[in-house]
């Protein structure tokens, strides 16, 4: 899969890497068990500091998405959501929905957007297979 970094963006670089890997997984561009380049290699490809990639990978490891190994590098290894994840996720979703609500987006539009995004995950996943 392709990863893109926007150096001038307000989102920190490690966050951009992390977000894209998760989106890649949702879309099926990246599969469970697949390996990712090592921290060193990815940093060299981007031409950015090792620590930035390390931070992204470490975050993904803590989230139960990546398994890091000195020998085999980084491997996608998905673990299912535990109750604490659901709680934290709901809290974040609340902020996102609050933003939309404050800006006057109707629940119909929000609902439509959510369905559209979920459907795109589904269809792209099928397309990959």
């Amino acid at each position: 899969m392709f990863l893109s970094l926007e150096l001038e963006s307000e989102t920190p670089l490690y966050m951009q890497i992390r977000d894209q890997i998760i989106e890649g997984l949702a879309c099926g561009e990246l599969q469970d068990g697949e390996s990712l380049p090592s921290t060193r290699q990815l940093a060299m490809d981007f031409g950015i500091n090792f620590h930035t990639v390390n931070k992204a990978y470490d975050m993904l490891r803590q989230e139960g998405i990546l398994r890091l190994n000195r020998k085999t590098g980084a491997i996608v290894s998905l673990t299912h959501a535990d109750p604490s994840f659901a709680l934290a996720w709901t809290a974040r979703l609340r902020v996102l929905l609050a933003e939309a609500h404050v800006k006057g987006m109707s629940s119909g539009i929000i609902d439509h957007a959510i369905r559209g995004i979920m459907a795109s995950f589904q269809s792209q996943k099928e397309g990959e297979q």
């Binding site: 899969m1 893109s4 970094l5």
Partner: peptide, 12 residues
């Protein structure tokens, strides 16, 4: 223009 750096994770 949005300026990005794009890499391929399968560069190997």
């Amino acid at each position: 223009y949005r300026q990005v750096i794009t890499v391929d994770t399968h560069g190997a």
